[in-house]
Design a protein around this nucleic acid. Structure first.
Lengths: 347, 347
DNA sequence: ATGAAAGCGCTAACAC
DNA sequence: GTGTTAGCGCTTTCAT
C-alpha cells in the first residue's frame, strides 16, 4: 500500500491539510475539537510525517552530524555520543555519527560543509582543526559545537575538560608522594587528529617543571605506531624497556589513557616490578577498566560533556546565544591502588 | 547567502537541471564533456545535493535506523553499531541510532513503523520482540534485519552468534577440567529487553545436564536489580555470599558477561579465594577487560556481526534477496588465567 | 544526449 | 480558526 500522507488524514478528518499540519504539530490557533478529530484520524491511519518533506518545506533538517575520530566504539567517543544523543533525540533530532578515518574524510566533510543544508548543526568530538577549517567554520550558517576540542577557536560553543590542569594535578600528586623522577607515556597508535595527546603532554611537562623537576628527571615515552592495537600486550614490552633503560629510573608515571596504563602495569608487574611499591602509575579517564584494575586515575564524565555540548547546540539552533557558550567540565583525581609514597632512594 | 541549488549549477554550466542531476549522480547517457563541465561548475560552487529534496523525489530516504537497547556505549552495542556504520556509511546512508530506554519507546517506534517512510531499513540489535511486533514486521515494506536477536522470526535477515552453543562449550571446558559443581551468574541490572540472557542461561543449564550434572550440583545466581550499575563492586559481595553459602560450593563458574566476571573475580579474591586454584571462572564476549584481566572467556566479534547484518540490509534495500539471509557468527573459547583443573575434593 | 514539466509530502504565507 | 496555494530542491517520465 502507498504511504499515508497528510492529505489522507485531512480527508479522513474532514479538514484541510494545513489544519492537519497545525493540529498534529501542536501549534495554537486550532480548535480543540478539531485537533482531537485530526489526532484521532491520524492515529487510525497510523500516520506519521515524512521527515524529508517537512525538512524540505521548512528548510530545517532536524539532523545533527557528530564528527568522531576513528571509531565510535572507543570509550570517550561512545560516551560522549551517548550524552549528545540523549539530549538531541529527545527534541526530535536525528543524531548522525560521522566517523573520520583519515584526514581526507575530514577535508571532504569540511569542503561540503559551507553549502550543506543537510544538517542543522555539527558537533565535533576531540578534533584538532587546522586554520583552513576554522576559517570555514567562521563563515558557516549552521552552528558548530566542540566536545573536548583543544581550543574554542572558530566554534560557536563547546564543552571540554581542561587536560592541562588535569595533568598538572596528577604530577602534583606524584610529587607530593615524594616522586622526583617522572615519566609520561603516550598512547601507542594515535589517530591523526586526536588532539588531547599534545595538551596532556604539555600539562605534564609544565607541571613537572613547576614542582621542580629538572628536564633530566623527566622521561617522555613517545607514541610509536606499532603492529597491533593498544590492546596488544606486546606494545608494552617496548615501553617497559625504555623505562628500565632510562638513565635514571622514573618512579612516578603518568599515562595518557587508562587502557594504556592498565596494559603497561600488567607488563611491568610481569617483569617483576612492584606497583605501587616501587613505582606509581596514574591513568586518565576513569573508565571501567580503571575501576576494575584498581588504577589511580583522573576522572572525567564524557556523557555529561556530551550533554552540555548538545544543550548548547540546541539553543544555538533555536537562534539563541548561550550565555556561557564555552563550558569547562570538571575532572578529579581518583586514588586507587597504583600510587603510593616513593621509597627512600638507596643512597 | 542562500543555498546553492542544482539550478545554480545548471545555469553556471549552461545546461538543464536534469542534466546536472544525471551528470552528478554518474548516470549514463550523458556526454563526457558535459559531465566534466557540470562537475567543474558544481565543484566551483561548492554544490552538494539536498538530501531531503532527493529523498522526497525518489521516495528513498538513504537513512537506516539502528535500534539499540539502553545505551549505545555498551561494549556490544557500540561495536555492533560500528560494524553497521562502516558498511552503510560507505554507501551513502545515514546511520541513525535509536536507543530504546523503556518498553514504551519500542512500542512507539513500532507503532509508527508500518507507515514510516522515514528510513529505508531498520536494524534491531539484541532485542527480544514480542509477537505483536513480529506481526507488524511481517507486513512491513522496509526490510528489518537483526543483530544478535534471539530468533529470526519476522526478520528479513540477521547475523547472530549461537549463545546456546557458546555456553555449552564453556560448560564442557569446565567439565573436562574436572569441575563437577557449576554455577551460572546472571548479569546484575538487566535491561527489560536485552535478550541474550535467557538463551545463555538455557545453554548453560542444558549443557550442565548433558555432561552429567545433577540439578543440585548446579547453582544459578539470578540477576537482581540493585543500587549502582554493574560496575559497582558492592553488587558482587552479594553474589559472592550466595556462592559461599551454597549447599555445595561450586568450583566452575560461568558468567554472563566479562565485565561481570571481572568484578566477581575481584571480589572473590578479596575474600581470599584462589582463582583459578580453587575455582575457575569463564566470562563472555572477550572484551578488552577480559584481555587485561586475564579472563578466560568466550570470544565474539560484534563489529563483524554488525557488518554482516549491514551487508544484508544493503542487498535487501536493493531489492535482492540475500542467498543466506540468516548468518550464524562464530564464537570461540579463549583460555587465559582464570580457569584451571579442579582440585581433588578433600574427601 | 538533453530539456521541459509534473510531481514527491509538507509548510507558511495569505485570504477568508 | 480554517482553507488555498505557492513553493522547498530534486528526480523522472516524456519529448525532442
Amino acid at each position: 500500500m502507498a504511504r499515508t500522507t497528510i492529505s489522507d488524514v485531512a480527508e479522513a478528518a474532514g479538514v484541510s491539510v494545513s489544519t492537519v499540519s497545525r493540529a498534529l504539530r501542536g501549534l495554537d490557533k486550532v480548535n480543540p475539537d478539531t485537533r482531537k478529530k485530526v489526532e484521532r484520524a491520524a492515529e487510525r491511519l497510523n500516520f506519521s510525517f515524512s521527515k524529508s518533506a517537512s525538512s524540505l518545506a521548512r528548510g530545517k533538517t532536524m539532523k545533527v552530524a557528530v564528527l568522531l575520530p576513528n571509531e565510535i566504539s572507543g570509550w570517550f567517543n561512545a560516551h560522549a555520543f551517548e550524552g549528545i544523543y540523549e539530549v538531541l533525540s529527545k527534541q526530535g533530532y536525528d543524531v548522525i555519527p560521522n566517523v573520520m578515518w583519515e584526514q581526507r574524510d575530514l577535508d571532504r566533510f569540511f569542503k561540503a560543509l559551507p553549502n550543506n543544508q543537510n544538517v542543522d548543526a555539527v558537533i565535533v568530538v576531540s578534533f584538532d582543526l587546522d586554520d583552513d577549517k576554522k576559517r570555514i567554520l567562521s563563515e558557516l550558517t549552521v552552528p558548530v559545537i566542540g566536545v573536548n576540542t583543544p581550543t574554542d577557536d572558530g566554534l560557536d560553543a563547546s564543552a571540554r575538560i581542561d587536560d592541562f590542569a588535569a595533568m598538572r594535578s596528577a604530577v602534583r600528586l606524584l610529587h607530593s608522594l615524594g616522586h622526583r623522577n617522572l615519566a609520561y607515556i603516550e598512547q601507542p597508535v594515535v589517530s591523526p587528529f586526536l588532539c588531547s595527546a599534545e595538551i596532556r603532554l604539555n600539562g605534564f611537562r609544565e607541571a613537572a617543571r613547576e614542582v621542580g623537576c629538572r628536564d633530566e628527571d623527566v622521561l617522555i615515552v613517545p607514541s610509536v605506531a606499532r603492529a597491533g592495537g593498544p590492546g596488544e600486550q606486546e606494545e608494552y614490552s617496548g615501553i617497559a624497556a625504555q623505562l628500565l633503560s632510562a638513565p635514571v629510573r622514573p618512579t612516578g608515571i603518568c599515562v595518557e589513557h587508562d587502557a594504556c596504563a592498565a596494559a603497561l602495569i600488567k607488563e611491568l608487574r610481569r617483569l617483576g616490578w612492584d606497583i605501587p611499591g616501587e613505582v606509581s602509575v596514574i591513568g586518565f579517564d576513569d573508565s571501567y577498566i580503571a575501576n576494575i584494575t584498581g588504577l589511580t586515575t583522573i576522572h572525567q564524565n564524557p556523557v555529561e560533556t556530551g550533554r552540555q555540548a548538545a544543550a548548547r547546540a540546541l539553543s544555538l539552533m533555536r537562534g539563541e546565544c548561550p550565555s556561557e557558550p564555552y563550558a569547562i567540565m570538571p575532572t578529579s583525581m581518583v586514588l586507587r591502588d597504583t600510587t603510593g609514597p616513593a621509597v627512600e632512594s638507596e643512597a
